[in-house]
Simulated assay, not measured.
Amino acid sequence: MADRDRNKKVLLDLAKQRDNCCCADCGAPDPDWASYKLGIFVCLNCSGTHRNLPAISRIKSIRLDYWDDDLVEFMKTNGNAAAKTVYERAVPVFYYRPQQQDCVVLREQWIRAKYERREFTGENNHLQDVYCSGFYEGTLWKKGRDNKQFMKRRFILSEKDFTLKYFTKDDESKGPKAVIAIKDLNAIFQPEKIGHLHGLQITYLQEEHTRNLFVYHDSGQEIVTWFNAIRAVRFSYLKTAFPTADDNELLPWITRSYLKEGYMEKTGPMQREPFKKRWFILNSKDRKLLYFKTPLDAVELGAVFIGTESHGYSVRESQPKGTRGNKWKCGVTVETPDRQFVFMCEQELEQKEWVEAFRQVISRPMIPQDYNSKNTSACIKALFYETKHCPLLLDPPM
């Protein structure tokens, strides 16, 4: 009969080893679960997907469940590093490897791709053709610009001309509704914002304005395939645009998550205008603060470039006096060389999070691409005017 206490101690010691102390699938620290068919240690969240793959993976708690001696020996002779050499042998360099904070569909499809479909073992490279070929087409549900309805639209992604196109009519001879340059495109999963587990936000520049497309697909595998197909074409574009850069330099620019999103109230340049509630997005990589009327707006209302302290930028918590119309009282003041911006947060926690986010951007040194504005000074001076003549946006760091 197995010694329960001894086996538990062995498993806990194994889980502390360098290769096993983080989840084999998402990197979360201190995994408490293990797959005794794959010989890997995983976190609670990833263990849920493994439970749905009983023919491939069997899950036990390393703290609470009973382990037979032979299963413990199997874990000792395997582990996360050994599994990685098998199941991640041929992961394309552009393919997104989900992290702990990523949404469910990304983590689930990563696990299924590795262990169920065995896409990266080197035996089934043909399964990668769908997102590696440089061409992908299909139908996605897209939110209408002026209403909340999602409608089926046909999308075509092409590496040949580095574009993403979508069509509103079945007859493609009438031309696409939009032709999106891969140069200006970003894609991130936004399930909570879009209201669908597979919600994907595609952002791009059109006539120097930031545009959003909100799409989803009922199939988790299909939407993640779209995401990685976009990353593949984006990576190809970056390799073409920056032939001397190595892969590690380019990878952070393929797709970029936002540093901070949420509602704040804003006032005008004179700080005598009434405050208005707006949805803000802080993009750390592009050093941009964008704002929209609602989270699902198709077009931004304004933008501001966030430079460094040496260029005259700073942020602080504040309680401005003499302002009008603000319902929220937790202030954030951003100083630029040409203007002071005042925002109001509803809660003190939000205030502190925004200030910390701004400080992260301000403290990060600028790179040459950050200076590639058509008219940086004019952009900074004209920002945050809610008119039809929105200011120029800085070129993306491409």
Rank of each mutant, 00 (worst) to 15 (best):
K9C: 13
I40E: 04
E356G: 09
K352H: 15
G122K: 02
K37H: 06
D70E: 09
E73Y: 11
M398C: 12
C43G: 03
R359E: 13
N147L: 04
T333D: 11
N326H: 15
W354S: 00
K321H: 10
Q201P: 03
F242M: 04
A24F: 14
L383K: 06
R118E: 12
P29F: 02
F214D: 02
K285I: 10
G199P: 06
S173H: 10
T323Q: 11
D102N: 06
I202W: 14
L200F: 05
S377F: 11
S35F: 03
G144K: 02
L383A: 09
Y87P: 01
K381H: 06
E207A: 14
R278H: 04
P337W: 08
S219D: 12
Q17G: 11
S314Y: 02
F242A: 02
F94D: 00
G322T: 01
A298K: 06
R112G: 01
K352M: 15
F162R: 02
D286R: 04
I194N: 04
K381A: 08
A82T: 07
C390P: 05
E137H: 09
W354N: 01
I254Q: 02
T376C: 13
V10F: 09
E116T: 05
T240A: 14
W33E: 08
M270G: 03
W253F: 15
E300Y: 06
R324N: 11
R145D: 14
I56K: 03
F341L: 14
E119L: 13
D65N: 09
Q109C: 13
T244R: 12
A178W: 07
C345W: 06
E108R: 05
Q17K: 08
R89G: 03
K329S: 15
H209W: 13
T240N: 13
P31S: 02
N372C: 13
L11D: 00
W141D: 07
I111S: 00
K142W: 07
K148P: 05
I194H: 09
S257H: 08
D25V: 01
V361Q: 00
F280M: 12
A382Q: 07
D19Q: 07
K160R: 11
A83R: 00
P368R: 05
T163M: 12
L349E: 11
N45F: 12
R231C: 07
A90M: 11
E137G: 03
T387R: 01
D247M: 07
T85H: 13
K381S: 11
C345S: 11
F120I: 00
I40W: 04
R107C: 08
M264C: 04
Q109H: 14
L71H: 05
Q271K: 07
R145M: 12
I223W: 07
G302I: 01
A229V: 08
G144C: 13
P368F: 09
F384S: 00
V342C: 10
Q101D: 03
I180W: 15
Y115Q: 01
E192M: 09
N125S: 15
E249K: 06
A83L: 09
I40Q: 00
A24Y: 08
Y87I: 08
K169N: 11
C43K: 00
P31T: 01
F150C: 10
N7F: 06
E108S: 04
L349I: 06
S318E: 14
K276T: 06
L127H: 04
R316G: 05
S318L: 10
L205N: 12
A83I: 05
K84C: 14
